[in-house]
Design a protein around this nucleic acid. Sequence first.
DNA 1: GGGGAATTGCAAAAATCGTTGCTTTAGCGA
DNA 2: TCGCTAAAGCAACGATTTTTGCAATTCCCC
Lengths: 184, 184
Amino acid sequence: MTTETTTGKRPGGRSAAVLVAVKRALEDLMAERGSDRVTIPMVAERAGVNPTSVYRRWGDLPSMINDIATYRLDPNRPMADTGDLREDLTSWTAEFVRHYSIPANAALLRAGAATAGETETDCLRNRRAEAGVILDRFGGDGPVSAEDIIDHVIAPIVYRVIYQPHTLSDATAPKLVNFLMGTR
Amino acid sequence: MTTETTTGKRPGGRSAAVLVAVKRALEDLMAERGSDRVTIPMVAERAGVNPTSVYRRWGDLPSMINDIATYRLDPNRPMADTGDLREDLTSWTAEFVRHYSIPANAALLRAGAATAGETETDCLRNRRAEAGVILDRFGGDGPVSAEDIIDHVIAPIVYRVIYQPHTLSDATAPKLVNFLMGTR
DNA sequence: GGGGAATTGCAAAAATCGTTGCTTTAGCGA
DNA sequence: TCGCTAAAGCAACGATTTTTGCAATTCCCC
């Protein structure tokens, strides 16, 4: 993420500072303790912000978590473009794995799962879009579809992040991409 | 699940009624709102039970969720054994999909994800064991491993349950198993 | 710079949650 | 049927969370 996605009417200066402070505090607390065991007053105190501000801006914790989970992983970051589909996918996937190897990010993902319901988090939706971008470079009618990428690359990683974080490694990305593309 | 898991000293009549009412109330509420956004007083009211009873029996919400999640998917149910690996896997997978197509079960899975940390839920751990059982029937050294099944069958389904429940259908199981076994 | 509006901070009130002691209900064995 | 006791209900309390009204700050646009 680069800067602020504050869609509100006053994105600059202090509001932004509060936003950043709260975001960091929330991430830290969620990584330290579970996504349960975190309360708004707690976050506010850690952020050095008045609880009222938090309440007014987000209302409650689940909303806050969903909103803040949005910030992750810069949507405009450059993606590898080597001319080789497998290679591009692998480095893109590796970055995804690396991102969720950071405890704070993993905690955010797990917490988001609880409230997920009907809509993917923005973070995951962005991954889907990126998968589309990569595929489009290669004509879009290759051996795999965006849905395949979600099912067989993103999903296994998400599963591991949630239930078996210790099984994530540098080998994960190439392994999954290889399976996806048919080399076993 | 069969009937009551009430291990207490007085399983009959009223206690059982309370247990069932609370269980139903909790499942309903978790399906309606997220597993967050549910409180014990809320559950008690919906169940027509005094909050104190709930507090005394379970203590807090996570414990309650864990306890009630025990009900899921009979571990001793018979599994298809047709002599054909693909067919066995498909029907086993279809049952998994069917189970999590029920909103209450999906809500429970999402809730479990939020608190997962290091350990899979019992339900998922059992699925892993079953995958092993099926593979063992066929010598255990076939084209796929238990890990492959987790990555490419279970994980995509779990992902959909959590983030895109409406994409689950009767076609999901055969599609994933076919991909797993190399027919595309 | 200066005006208007959004946002924050502060403080007090209101609501909610979770606990505890006690009373009442009702299952279970004799 | 009766007594014992586990479990549920009730009421009051303290602690924490959440809301709300108002003053002070500070950002954006002219």
